[in-house]
């Protein structure tokens, strides 16, 4: 049980309000870990801090026994942390192929095979704005997976997609984990989280409220209180 990412006492304040407050947790190598919590719990902020998009006020982060606190976004990415966003960030004027090639230079055959396995049956030269929202999410995930990585962060992968794409996503994430990728994902869809993840971290008001296996979390009284109200 080797941890790939250690988050230690990370704090981020906006004005006087702490969006993330002395947050500490480890992500174990080779697992699928879910980060859940009510809206405003600080999940996306935490993602942005890990990928170096937002600077942190206190604490530190260690990735593969290397301190990445304060590193630039592109440097952190090059250490092997790939990610997607809550709202897809495809390069809107580029084609599917160009979008994917920015992540890694590979042949058309590889790209095509990847897309087909993802269930995207569009030509590589399709402009990405001509894709449906679900397909855009899949292409963004393909791009994140193509980028050389050992750690994958997904910010609400199922937001706004239909049940078919959701199953597709589940399959892809499982497959990636099987191939050695450690996955950290933010998700609101509890069925999705519980059926997919090995470990669940519950965030509330910027603090870790509870963590454990899905079965343990499901029974945790404090988690239920936060989600269902007292």
């Amino acid at each position: 049980m080797k941890s790939i990412l250690c988050v230690e006492n990370v704090t981020k304040k906006f004005g006087g309000v702490a969006a993330v407050n002395k947050c500490s947790f480890d992500v174990t190598q080779g697992t699928i870990t879910a980060l859940i919590g009510p809206n405003g719990a600080g999940k996306t902020t935490l993602f942005n801090i890990i990928s170096g998009i937002q600077p942190l006020d206190e604490g530190r982060m260690v990735f593969q026994s290397e301190d990445i606190t304060g590193s630039a976004t592109h440097e952190i990415a090059r250490k092997g942390i790939s990610r997607t966003f809550q709202l897809t960030r495809l390069f809107k004027n580029l084609t599917i192929k160009q979008n994917l090639l920015v992540a890694k230079e590979v042949s058309d055959v590889v790209l095509k095979k990847m897309l087909v396995s993802f269930g995207v049956k569009k030509s590589l030269s399709t402009k990405c704005t001509d894709l449906s929202y679900g397909q855009q999410r899949l292409v963004e995930l393909a791009r994140a997976l193509l980028f050389p990585h050992s750690f994958l962060m997904l910010d609400e992968p199922t937001a706004g997609v239909n049940p078919f794409v959701r199953e597709q996503l589940k399959k892809i994430i499982r497959c990636a984990a099987k191939n050695g990728t450690t996955v950290l994902l933010i998700e609101h869809d509890m069925d999705f989280v519980m059926s997919l993840s090995d470990h669940v971290i519950v965030l509330n008001e910027g603090c870790v409220l509870a963590q454990g296996t899905p079965a343990v979390i499901k029974k945790n009284r404090r988690v239920l209180e936060v989600y269902l109200g007292k």
């Binding site: 592109h74 580029l94 791009r143």
Partner: peptide, 24 residues
Amino acid sequence: SSIGRTLQAIRDDELGAMVLGKNV
């Protein structure tokens, strides 16, 4: 070239390019 592709990616979405390891 791949440089030009990256330039266009940066034009469309800097953050998207950064998380793909590009030094904007």
